[in-house]
Design a protein around this nucleic acid. Structure first.
Lengths: 199, 199
DNA sequence: AGTTATAGCGCACGATCGTTCGTGTTGTAA
DNA sequence: TTACAACACGAACGATCGTGCGCTATAACT
């Protein structure tokens, strides 16, 4: 059996984590199993877990990878847009596209992880919460910029708007995954349009 | 050790199911474990599972009990209101109150179950989807009644409105559980108010 | 050429999972 | 009083869980 060259730890690790993200997006982070994962990547259990030490570290690695992918797929494409309403619109479109493209086989990874771990204290919950706070902050910041630029009504509450946009996303993800309702994405788009149209 | 009188099966079953609902609302339906559940209700594993035959049947029983509780806590109090905008407003307020009262220790049971099983085909997924379709239908029906009665703009799309109201609920539950943000309920209320205010 | 660190495997462990089977105790009906 | 059905228990099953230990083969460094 062929041995890999030294320093390829990172490559193997990436292979494992990528697979872990896929599995966790459908079965949940807790549904992740070292044995099944090892089987899927063609490794032994002990050889696999060696890269992480502990299952919780593996879960954290998968979560971080999923967050990075989310950022790359949703935020990066619109980061260079001018701050304010333009970028906010682009960001919302980007999110809906991210869901439509099926970036994760099990829908929005972070939504699922949120509800899975919201009652289980620990580093995973903390990580998810931090990521989502940052996400809400992104939405709220451009909302504030848009309001200050007069692109949105002066009495707009940026945090309220961020909440409502995020709620539209969660509703879309929910309907899309559970009810297999493709129209949910259009509904969310309509909802976003209405929210981002100045009176 | 005392023996129960004949016919008390239903009572024991109820005890088990009630406990199962509590556990599942925080740990998820898949996190339910016969051993831990038996320990919590003071029974043996075999004596407990006897009432259901299979873990999946136990999960279904818990799901049905949770649905019944949801209906009792959210719908029943407003069922007698006049159909249309009045009942729709009352229903939304009832839902938010249901979340605020903490009917389930782990937040909205059905939201959690939705995202947990949206990628696992089987009777549990089917049951959740059916229940949620009915819920959306309830919202959409009163939205339609309200529109036809002139209480909402004539161009209102009842299904779109139902989607947005439900999204507000999901967003509220999410923020309330993950971020421990009590303001989420007020935000959702504001969102509902805006959605249900005729132009 | 010899040493050392790395990456992986095989095996085993204790624990817990869901489930089945046999047994006993109890309340009800014959 | 006897027979029966309901209800619960203890023990055990095979499977799988996460984790640790010891060994081997390789690649890099001296």
């Amino acid at each position: 059996m062929p041995r890999r060259t030294r320093g390829e730890t990172a490559r193997t690790r990436t292979t494992i984590v990528d697979r872990a993200v896929s599995v966790a997006s459908t079965d949940g982070l807790e549904g992740l199993t070292i044995g099944r994962l090892a089987e899927q990547v063609g490794m032994s259990k002990s050889g696999l877990i060696r890269h992480f030490g502990t299952k919780e570290h593996l879960q954290l690695a998968a979560l971080e990878a999923a967050t990075a992918r989310f950022t790359g797929e949703v935020w990066d494409p619109v980061a260079e847009e001018p701050g304010g309403l333009v970028r906010l619109r682009a960001l919302c479109a980007s999110w809906l596209s991210y869901l439509r493209r099926g970036v994760f086989p099990g829908g929005c990874f972070l939504s699922a992880a949120s509800l899975e771990f919201d009652d289980r204290p620990g580093p995973i919950r903390d990580e998810v919460a931090t990521t989502m706070r940052r996400w809400l902050w992104l939405l709220g910041r451009d909302a504030e910029l848009a309001r200050d630029a007069g692109e949105l009504p002066a009495d707009t509450d940026p945090r309220q708007l961020a909440f409502e946009l995020n709620a539209a996303f969660m509703g879309a993800n929910w309907a899309h995954r559970l009810l297999r309702d493709d129209a949910a994405l259009e509904r969310a788009q309509r909802s976003v349009d209405r929210l981002l149209t100045a009176a």
